[in-house]
Amino acid sequence: MSTTPARLSPNRVPFDAGRAAYIGLNLVLLAFLLLPIAIVLVFAFNPMPYISFPPVGISLRWFDKFFSSSDFMNALWLSLWVAGCVLVLAVLIGGACALALARGNLPGRSFLTAFFMSPLMLPAILTGLALFQSYLLVGIGRPVWGLIMAHTLVAVPYVLRTTLAVLHNFDRRIEEAAAVLGASPTRVFFEVTLPLIRPGVFAGGVFAFIVSFDQFPVSLFLVVPKGETLPVVLFNYMKFDLDGAIAAASMVSILLAIAVVLVLERLIGLKAYVKL
């Protein structure tokens, strides 16, 4: 027993200035990221129609206002619907593009990659304006699928990026092993390639969903009266009524985005490793 203290002493972590600074920096960064959300939270539950601190009470009146407003609800459903379509389209297009770029032996591959990534380089407001003018020019107006296509355009690079990253580290012998064991090219794709690149495609898909759900600049010119997405409705609402409904809406969209990510993770993400 008497040796116990002696044995403990080497385990005691001496004060390390570098480590303390590291933890401190992380805390500051976390606070920087989360504090605005905390303020939104306070604003959302505070019954006063303006940001007051300390809050005078807790009330759900802004959530009530948000959920009972048909404008907000229509916009919310439209945004979710658009983001869902964008997720599917971006995954299909971005995934296929990534495969073609990584595997296709295409001439001018680096040019094509840069081309597909270019929507990220362009200011989104210009993308929106340019598409708006193009749509008017060809006379299709501003249909919902036009909005979905616009969002897909800026979402595809995210899927492309993450999928290319996975494909870059992909051992092609694994596919050859499957082929030599009797798997046709189609089966190789579904049995081996797809499951292995799925985490990358999926991560890109989550980005695509969020990029669309939060999309403001691209939507700005492309939404139509009675067909406005949530960020656009919130922006315009703010010009007239800057009350807690905005904060409630923000909370709801944050929670919804998290929920969607978690559900997708459950459905697609984890299963990729648990199943087969």
């Binding site: 008017l136 409705v233 922006f235």
Partner: peptide
């Protein structure tokens, strides 16, 4: 009546024919 409540009206008008 199609009533646009989404800003910015003027750039949108400028961009259309």
């Amino acid at each position: 009546v199609s009533a646009d409540q989404a800003f910015p009206y003027v750039p949108k008008l400028q961009a259309s024919s």
